[in-house]
Amino acid sequence: MLKVENLVVKYGMIEAIKGISFEVRDGEIVTLIGANGAGKTTTMHTISGLIRPASGTIYMDGQDITKVPSHRIVSMGLAQVPERRRVFAQQTVEENLILGAFTRKDTEGIKEDMKKVFERFPRLEERRKQLAGTLSGGEQQMLAMGRALMARPKILLMDEPSMGLSPLLVREIFRIIEDIHKNGTTVLLVEQNARMALAVADRAYVLETGKITLEGTGSELAKSEKVRKAYLGG
């Protein structure tokens, strides 16, 4: 589904991503864990085309998308729930969801998907006419997820969906991620909350200052001495 090869990303002189390779196969949940500043968000932005890499290749379904403009990547079936949610605060919940379906022309399908989003997130339906900026953090996260689902993605990228949420909400968000995955969407998840991420992931990669230092199945990494010390608190 998604394959990243020898990706290098620079901010000016600084190399933020130093040649990483990883892949997400059809139907998997793959997680990229790492500390603050490891380059997780940079990787996500580069895949979505918001940043251009210095070198390396990104493939989606075998097609090179490294130089494809970001809006075309969305219509190819790759959507992203960005870090800090970035909902359109001045627009209503409903308008945010409609923007999520921006690349689609099938009015009926959009309506149907909106219904599905509201079934999944009943809180959003209650607040459909409310400005997104007035929602709580958890509701905004749900809106950002619903908005990304409105693109009917084949693969969904999620950047720190648990950030700033209460433990109860974090569990809720992860339950929803698993549910989205069960419904046939491939997921690439970036998380600081390594414990939760490894618990849901089929496979995982550890990113440290721009390099992938470990990889394996979710349970393998959860048991690894190094990961336990560095990311799971002992």
């Binding site: 979505s48 970001s70 359109f88 990304a148 693109a151």
Partner: peptide, 11 residues
Amino acid sequence: EDAGAARLMGI
């Protein structure tokens, strides 16, 4: 409002 987020919507 947010050009980056707009690009992620496919705009």
